[in-house]
Design a protein around this nucleic acid. Structure first.
Lengths: 208, 208
DNA sequence: GGTTTAAACTTAACAGTGTTAAGAATGATC
DNA sequence: GATCATTCTTAACACTGTTAAGTTTAAACC
């Protein structure tokens, strides 16, 4: 078959040949690494983190239970690479609004979390992922740097005196809103307050 | 050698074993429910959430692997009761500073989280606990009510227009600071910023 | 007091998990 | 075309939460 892909890192753009047969062959099906990540992500958003097992992922991908080991070493290795992709996507979501100020960027942050609740949760589950995995460390550092730059652009209506305090306050608010929103706590707050707002509008208001 | 479960089996001889343990008797030792919760909590703060298994808890408590079932029904039942205790303790920690304003209460919130990182994390792990457990639902509601009252006392230097937006902003900031602090992100921020502050001072500043 | 009943706790077993080890199949390289 | 290194397979191991059935004990009832 001329449709053979290079093992892991094709130096250039991996050309996708027409009529790619995903699981026709038993061995060496070519892009299992990518398929496993996509499968894991689907499973994550469909059924939550608790369902993200090595066997569940491989079963859905149609391969044997241990097929992920050569690619990721372990479950936490796979989850770490998935989390790394999440950090990269978050950075991508933040980049275009960087110039529009912190409120817009904060809103983009929370919206990313709400659009990918499972992935976002996974990104901060330090007992499920391994920060020593190079891809994760790199992606996390990239996103952190962008966040720091972002928080630096904030005007300071806050009462914090130190620069670190100001940034912590801003990041805390944004991250806390994301976490609370995913957990359903903000819906509860809206209900308790009797306010007639969408979740998005609430977050936007809280970030003013 | 560490695999043997129970050194002192009754074995039908004298009904009083020489080495009298905490509660002595093999069956009906009286306060196993409390002991299991305490053991689980120790294990939680010592080794993290990942180590909190039914078998690990009962092994450390010196009882059989299924001894927790009559009391809690399942692992998530046990963890839910533990989380309920956490919510109650959080409310207790917040009560005395309620009159001192939101900054003081926010600081108490974060300090509670930093003093009990495992427990605090567990309280918001919705895939490990079961919010339908009555004790948890009650404790969570109590603490939520106190939080809402607390957030209501805030002065509003924030830009939010709606009451819910203001409260979400405040709660988000406090909760986000707690989560980020536990995850070590605030230490990283301090290091990146080159600021010479304690974590506690940073949080206090961020809450001004 | 003696008997019955209900609960706590036990072992044994089941289905599931992540991981390891060894072998089969294949693409790449000399 | 032969060799080699991967990729993927099956089989097995140690572990998990949970269920079922049996044993021990405390309490309740006559």
């Amino acid at each position: 078959m001329s449709s053979t892909c290079n093992p892991a890192r094709p130096a250039g753009a991996g050309s996708t040949p027409p009529g790619r047969r995903m699981s026709a062959k038993t061995y060496h099906h070519g892009n299992l690494r990518v398929v496993l990540l996509a499968t894991a992500r689907d499973l994550l958003e469909e059924q939550g983190i608790a369902a993200l097992g090595l066997r569940a992922i491989t079963r859905r991908a149609g391969v044997s239970a241990t097929a992920a080991i050569p690619h990721f070493g372990s479950l936490s290795g796979l989850l770490s690479v998935l989390a790394a992709a999440g950090f990269d996507e978050l950075a991508e979501a933040l980049a275009p609004v960087l110039a529009q100020g912190a409120a817009a960027a904060g809103l983009a942050y929370v919206r990313f979390a709400l659009r990918n609740p499972g992935l976002f949760t996974l990104m901060f589950r330090s007992d499920a992922i391994d920060r020593a995995v190079p891809a994760l460390a790199a992606a996390s550092a990239r996103t952190s740097a962008m966040l720091t730059r972002l928080l630096g652009t904030m005007p300071g209506p806050q009462g914090a005196r130190t620069r670190a305090g100001m940034r912590a306050a801003q990041w805390g608010r944004v991250h806390g809103l994301a976490v609370l929103a995913i957990d359903g706590m903000l819906d509860a707050l809206l209900a308790a307050e009797g306010e007639d707002l969408s979740l998005d509008a609430l977050v936007a208001d809280a970030l003013r």
